[in-house]
Design a protein around this nucleic acid. Structure first.
Lengths: 204, 204
DNA sequence: GAGTTCCTGGATCGCGTGCTCCAATAATGG
DNA sequence: CCATTATTGGAGCACGCGATCCAGGAACTC
């Protein structure tokens, strides 16, 4: 026999390439991110790249799956909480914090540009589903506790929360005057008002 | 002398290609929209295409400029109105109606994917500026009339309106359960509440 | 240290793309 | 009806890309 597979080294290399891919894709777009550039960013040769990912598209999918996994972890971390509205506001706040990383908005729009590729659309749908499940869970609990409006179905409220978070991300990416850290508070306040509903003031 | 340039025919042909480009780009993304496919969609040969647009990128820019021009027309149509809040809500409602055209959200995300190309970024910035100017104008008038909250600067309110409209567009594109026509009313109501501000109810 | 397998980089290939070129055609003026 | 020029289609070109291939080195077992 001879050397065994060093899974730790392997995983580290893989993450290194993923990180390089995220960086380059975020700043050049998916098609602008040539494998050559990703390799240069990662400090590797193209042979190495295709040893870890059969295809450039596979790298993108790996990045997306990583994101989905993080969402699932986040969901697990909130298990056992009972203050639904507070949880929802923390989730929204966390999204605002993520938007502060300059790579995130760039990557998101890059991915949007290749949505028509079926595999990417599927991965993104899974990501969306994970996030949606998380939001929906707490929206429903919030409704049960009387903290969240009931004039709009829970599913639609979850969609609207995503709308606000995605819109926030987009604004950060495009609008120079729109700084994530400065707008975070207004986002949380707006979401709170939206979830409470406004017609009649909730707690007079 | 011989035949003169038929500007009408020329403009029509040009619009035909623009329309084909919009369709194909919306459904395939920018890089997925090969010039060959655009030509097939328009029913022309590649020679004709490059007779009207020196470059594939030029077609994209022409589409974007058309959009900017439409925004300017819309702005002109509202001249003379005095009910600022109503104007703003009409603008938001119009954005929701546009989102119902299935090509619009697809095209928007396709463009997002090529934002890193300087010329595209510039054209999009101009588009953004036109929309922003329009919103800002009426936000300021609304504030002066006491219809719009004053605890947040007008510029930031304009950014937030864009956030809501863009987020809406994105949701329509991604979320199958999110139908533009069904959500329109909630969008308008949410924007109204957002513009009024909520802390203390405005008109008890 | 020998043997074996895994890992790595870079030269190289084939393909699809945006774009050019030119001959044929349509449209106009005299 | 002829001359002239705008307009058109499509064959073909050059290039850049993703992906392949392979030879040398590294890592590990015995």
């Amino acid at each position: 026999m001879a050397r065994t597979v060093d899974t730790e080294r392997y995983a580290a290399r893989r993450l290194q390439i993923i990180d390089a891919g995220l960086t380059v894709i975020a700043e050049r777009g998916y098609d602008g991110a040539t494998t050559a550039r990703i390799c240069r960013q990662a400090g590797i040769g193209s042979g190495t790249f295709f040893h870890y990912f059969a295809t450039k598209a596979d790298l993108l999918l790996a990045i997306l799956e990583l994101g989905t996994a993080e969402t699932r972890e986040k969901a697990a971390a909130f298990e056992g909480r009972t203050d639904a509205l507070a949880v929802l506001l923390e989730l929204v706040g966390a999204a605002a914090d993520e938007a502060a990383d300059p790579r995130v908005p760039g990557f998101v729009r890059a991915v949007a540009g290749v949505m028509h590729v079926p595999a990417v659309a599927a991965a993104l749908a899974e990501d969306d589903a994970a996030q949606r499940e998380l939001l929906l869970h707490w929206v429903e609990r919030g409704r049960a506790a009387g903290e969240v409006r009931t004039d709009v179905p829970a599913g639609r409220l979850a969609s609207w929360l995503t709308l606000l978070m995605d819109g926030f991300l987009e604004r950060v990416a495009v609008d120079d005057g729109f700084v994530a850290a400065d707008e975070r508070e207004l986002l949380v306040a707006t979401v709170r008002d939206f979830l409470r509903g406004v017609g009649p003031p909730p707690h007079p």
